[in-house]
Write a protein that binds this DNA or RNA. Structure first.
Length: 741
RNA sequence: GACCGAUUAGCUCAGCUGGUAGAGCGCUACAUUGACAUUGUAGAGGCCACAAGUUCAAGUCUUGUAUCGGUCACCA
């Protein structure tokens, strides 16, 4: 071993210790943020980006304003930031817009609970105005938490364009959107069966329902001793609301009763039922006869519609309590069920009890059991034909007649929007096929209020309140996904025809979890195509769920959650990012363990030490001289180039997991293990030509590797970059250095 | 019930348009005061779920079977 290797060369002192992420990350982020280069306008102003360059834009899926960062967010931020940094380095006008979501129901109920606990007051005690004031203050106070945590991941978001779902600009967008759709007849008010959540005290959309399997009892009985037909039901308490009995038209057993009407008193309630024939009835199930309760079942409501049968009475209220008089009066539905069964037994009407498996509809957010109720609500008609005045959507021409459903299909079918991985396209089409009108009104207070005012029989819809006295605004708010659906363009200033909107819409990419494909992705496509005539994004990249190393879902109750902030502290943001990207093919769930993250911290240190080695041995290098490369050194440069090409093409294909792995592999197992090892002899030899050639090659490998790795591990690469001798790095900030070719 | 996906090394997975298997972690042995407290070299380990078919050739294409997972719908 020669002396030169051991000689402490004149290199920056920080390289003498292992890489310590915690002592650099905050400063590096501040340096980036102060440079202004998260904002593409500044990049253009400083000549970093050409003003005519192509654009690349992503809108951040806004996290809950009151939430904290979890691994799902971290994975999303990692993927998006990698793409944003890559395209920025490629000289594109690159914009990544941050924002937060009000998470209406969740936030309101959180604040309500706190007030209830601290002051013993309900929202009705406080009143609408006071509650909203409190909820807004809470949201405002807690937003910094999630935003600062977002910064910690190294996210190069343009904070000057921050958007909040309830801020003034978004408010205007939502109002305008509602008004436009209302004027086109796509939004209507309808008296229908809604999914009522008695726990959350609001309607919810079909997509917010989760079915839970439970054991239930199927009761078979007659309404009264002289009623000719037995019926089966698992909800006998609703039978006091029956207005018909439905049988299959071909069922010989009941032919003679079709069209007849019977009256009786059922559990103290007088009812009148007509026998109708409907093809929907399955003659094989139960007795083949079905008691029709229009006011408390969607199917029955539709059936009553078809046969012109009375749809009311409503016999259950918003608190899931019986509203009839008699023995059931005021009982909760479950108690009423027991009471009805007891009565049936008393009257000797119960013929059979069987245990069956049943899927019970519950509200996703509150867990409350859904009570179907008839209500006057606002809906979006997805099948109504209208003229789309302006269209840039592939496969749809301006001025053509279409429906929202068709727009959603065409956008994906004609390749306007691509979904990755491919298989989710089928899931998407499948969902649209089964899509019904979307209920958009909610009975909570925190959110965008429906811009409709009533006065006697008059209805007014407008962005602002109507002139004159006596107008009363609709008390309901909009489904949070209504405003979220506008997000790709409302964040860019719509309905104003802003420069941003012209420049950055359609966005390049939407990156989000596959669990909100329907909630959000589909709604964004609907809203964007309708309101702007443009697709919202060219590509949808669906990431999977982050799971633990045993492939279980992370949950607080299992105690297997890994906190990204703790990981960042321990191993650094770079290691955390890489662990969330490598091994994560789009759409696949990702197993994560602390050990994996630790492994990538070692990698960050490896890069650190590669730098130390190279700087040690290039201290005497003369950059101004031309060197003639040895044939091995030429080969190394070729290998370097092909690694760059590989990584580049995987990023372009959105295969970040492959790109990261290949970059990692080149740096560790090619540059460090092979090139550096063989350099030891060359660098300590007396052959000045060979030394000069290798020194130049090592420097080239280092700077190119730093660039190539920067999108994946921005902190360590930038930290090193800042320490490189100026003459060796050419650009001051690695973040805006040119991507190698 | 409908649709979709998975089944490859002990574990987690890659293997695009078909040419007799790869990575990371783990394991074993050796080396190492090393640019590296976070290292290197070498190695073991797979009839690629099963069966049939297409083909000169099949993890790779077709069909069927089994097991596991997911999404959607839902019958009173």
């Amino acid at each position: 071993m020669s002396e030169k290797v051991n000689q402490p060369a004149n290199i920056p002192e920080i390289f003498l210790k292992p890489y310590d992420p915690a002592s650099h990350e905050t400063d590096i982020y501040a340096m980036w943020e102060n440079s202004g280069y998260f904002n593409p306008d500044n990049c253009i102003k400083d000549g970093v980006t050409d003003k005519e360059a192509e654009t690349f834009s992503i809108v951040l899926p806004p996290p809950n304003v009151t939430g904290t960062l979890h691994m799902g967010h971290a994975a999303m931020l990692a993927v998006e930031d990698i793409l944003v940094r890559y395209h920025r380095m490629n000289g594109k006008r690159t914009l990544w817009i941050p924002g937060t979501d009000s998470a209406a129901i969740a936030t309101q109920s959180k604040v309500e609970k706190e007030i209830q606990k601290a002051e013993g007051k309900s929202r009705h005690d406080l009143g609408r105005e006071e509650l909203l004031k409190r909820v807004s203050a809470f949201a405002e106070n807690s937003k910094d938490t999630i935003l600062n945590q977002t910064r910690k991941m190294g996210s190069s978001l343009d904070w000057s364009r921050y958007a909040y779902t309830l801020d003034d600009k978004r408010y205007k967008a939502v109002m305008t959107a509602f008004k436009n759709m209302y004027d086109d007849g796509l939004i209507y008010r309808g008296d229908r069966i809604v999914n009522w959540d008695p726990k959350g005290q609001t309607t919810i959309s079909d997509d917010e329902i989760v079915y839970e399997e439970r054991k239930s009892t199927l009761y078979t009985f007659k309404y009264s001793p002289d009623f000719p037909i037995s019926i089966s039901t698992s909800r006998p308490e609703t039978k006091v609301g029956d207005t018909a009995v439905a049988v299959h038209p071909d069922d010989v057993r009941y032919q003679k009763f079709i069209g007849q009407t019977f009256s009786c008193t059922f559990c103290d309630v007088p009812i009148e039922v007509t026998v109708i024939a409907d093809k929907e009835v399955d003659p094989e199930f139960g007795t083949g006869a079905l008691g029709v309760t229009p006011a408390h079942s969607k199917i029955d409501w539709d059936m009553a519609d078809r046969h012109n049968i009375t749809k009311r009475p409503q016999i259950i209220n918003e608190y899931a309590k019986m509203t009839v008089s008699g023995r059931l009066s005021g009982l909760k539905v479950n108690d009423a069920r027991t009471a009805v069964v007891a009565w049936l037994k008393e009257e000797n009407l119960l013929e059979k009890e069987e245990t069956i498996d049943q899927n019970v509809a519950t509200a996703e957010r509150t867990g409350g059991i859904i009570e179907p109720l008839p209500k006057l609500q606002w809906w979006i008609d997805v099948n109504k034909k209208f003229i789309l005045k302006h269209s840039e959507i592939p496969g749809v021409s301006s001025g053509s007649e279409t429906t929202l459903k068709e727009l959603m299909v065409t956008t994906v079918e004609n390749g306007g929007t691509d979904i990755l991985p491919e298989r989710f396209k089928r899931v998407y089409f499948n969902w649209i096929t089964n899509l019904n009108d979307w209920c958009i009104s909610r009975q909570i207070w925190f959110g965008h209020r429906i811009p409709v005012w009533y006065r006697n029989d008059e209805i007014y819809c407008g962005v602002t309140a109507p002139e004159g006295a006596g107008w009363e605004q609709d008390p309901d708010t909009l489904d949070t996904w209504f405003s979220s659906g506008l997000w790709s363009f409302s964040t860019l200033g719509w309905p104003e025809q802003t420069e941003d909107l012209k420049t950055y819409h359609p966005t390049a990419l939407l990156e989000t979890g596959y669990d909100i494909l329907f909630f959000w992705v589909a709604r964004m496509i609907l809203m964007s195509t309708y309101h702007t005539g443009q697709i919202p994004f060219k590509t949808v990249y669906l990431h999977g769920l982050v799971r633990d190393e045993k492939n279980r879902k992370m949950s607080k109750s299992l105690g297997n959650t890994i906190d990204p902030l703790t990981m960042i502290e321990k191993f650094g943001a770079d290691a955390t990012r890489l662990s969330l990207v490598i091994g994560a093919a789009p759409g696949n769930d990702l197993p994560l363990s602390e050990n994996k993250i630790k492994g990538y911290k070692n990698f960050a240190n490896k890069i650190w030490n590669i730098t130390r080695f190279i700087l040690t041995h290039t201290a005497d290098m003369d950059m101004s001289k031309d060197v003639s490369f040895s044939s091995r050194d030429q080969e190394i440069l070729t290998n370097l180039k092909s690694a760059v090409i590989d990584v580049t093409s995987e990023i372009e294909k959105y295969n970040l997991y492959l790109a990261g792995e290949k970059a990692y592999h080149f740096i560790w197992h090619e540059l460090a293990d092979v090139i550096l090892e063989e350099s030891k002899d060359i660098l300590t030899s007396d052959d000045a030509t060979a030394r000069a050639s290798r020194q130049a090659v090592l420097m080239e490998c280092l700077t190119t590797s730093l660039k190539m790795m920067h999108p994946f591990m921005p902190y360590v690469t930038e930290t090193i970059w800042q320490e490189l001798p100026k003459v060796k790095r050419k650009t001051d900030i690695l973040m805006v250095a040119k991507w190698p070719k």
